[in-house]
Structure formats: C-alpha cells, structure tokens
C-alpha cells in the first residue's frame, strides 16, 4: 500500500494495523540441506531412531574401556575418581527415596539403554569427547551394559538390539505432577 493512502480516517487505521502486523514468515535464514541435517542430528531416541550402522561386542568394549575410560571411572566402573558407572539392580535394595547413600548408575537408575550410546558418543571420554568411532561406542556401551548385568557376555549391540535391552529402573519413572497452589507438597 503506498504511503499516501494513509491520509483519511478508516484507511489510516487499516494502514497502521498493517504496519504493526507480525508476519508468519520473515524469510530470514537459509534452508538446511539434508546432508547437513544427517551430519548434525546425532541424538538417539529411546526407540532407537537415530542409531547409526555398525555394532560392538562386550569383548571389544572391555579393551576400549580399559584404555580410554578406566582412568576416570575405575577398572570395573566403580572405583572412580569420577562417576560410578556400574551398579546392577539388586533385589531387595532400599528404594531410592529412602536412602540418600544408595549409588545410582546405569544398571539400577537409567531407564533407557539408548541413552548410554547417545551420551558416550557425544560427551565421552571427557578429555577427548566425540573421538570414538560408532563401532567403538557400540562396544563400550555393550561392556557397560554387561558390567551392569543387563546383557550377556556374548551379546552383540547394534541399532536393532540396543533399544530392546530391558532396563529395570524404567518402571520407577514418573512424569512430574507438581502444580503449585495450596495442594500437598510433592
């Protein structure tokens, strides 16, 4: 609309409204290419969507773990100095809400096995994040799951098998229901 239209009453209002309206599209940015999406979209979903090709074994994982993880997490995953990674689900253990001392780790606290792959690939080893190949991540994931008594010693971990690993802690997870207000504290 040319500027000079905005001279009389009703037209003016229409014009003003128009100049203040927020468009749905500004046209800023550039289209993301399929290729760059494929490279950057590294997140793994619990159903396994996003898992790459390749596979790993507990045996190979043990070698990688000893070389690249044990210095910070201990030779069997419990000695530290950093996070304890191994704590199998123990029958009859005190529920977590009743004990602030009970160790939380993959075997007794993590609800999805896919998270192990996703996290190790993006953030570990801490001193060289993102340095492992997909096969190495599969292997070290297999070793961690085995050490936590979640899979057998001869299991093969890949895009098909990883989402199917049963995680005992999953059944304890609930979604937040706090609402504020004057209800009971949750």
């Amino acid at each position: 609309m040319p500027f000079w239209v905005c001279v009389t009453g009703t037209v003016m209002i229409a014009c003003e409204r128009r100049s203040n309206a927020v468009p749905d599209h500004f046209g800023y940015g550039r289209p993301a290419t399929e290729k760059e999406i494929a490279v950057k979209a590294i997140a793994i979903r619990p159903d396994g969507k996003g898992l790459p090709a390749g596979s790993g074994t507990v045996l190979d994982g043990a070698i990688i773990y000893a070389a690249k993880c044990a210095s910070c997490h201990g030779s069997t995953g419990v000695e530290g100095p950093f996070n304890v990674l191994v704590a199998p689900d123990t029958v009859g253990a005190k529920p977590f809400d009743q004990s602030s001392k009970r160790v939380k780790a993959i075997g007794n606290y993590w609800p999805y096995a896919t998270t192990v792959f996703d996290y190790v690939r993006r953030a570990m080893p801490f001193n060289a994040p993102g340095s492992l190949s997909d096969n190495e991540v599969y292997s070290v994931t297999a070793w961690l799951l085995h050490a936590n008594k979640l899979i057998g010693a001869d299991a093969v971990i890949n895009a098909k098998t990883l989402p199917g690993v049963v995680m005992p802690a999953r059944k304890y997870y609930v979604t937040d229901s706090r609402k504020g207000g004057d209800g009971p504290y949750e």
Binding site: A43, I44, R45, P46, P95, F96, D97, Q98, K104, I106, Y109, W110, P111, Y112, T114, T115, D118, Y119, A123, A169, Y172, Y173, V174, T175, D176, E186
Partner: peptide
C-alpha cells in the same frame, strides 16, 4: 529423547521408590 540429563541426572527419587 531421554537424554542423560533427563534420566541419570536432573531426576529425583520421590515417594514409593518412584523417580520423578
């Protein structure tokens, strides 16, 4: 996506052995 920061961390044990 169930990332590590919404499972292993930033979750809290609550009543009856639940994990919020």
């Amino acid at each position: 996506f169930m990332t590590r920061e919404e499972t292993s961390k930033y979750t809290e044990p609550v009543k009856d052995g639940k994990i919020r």
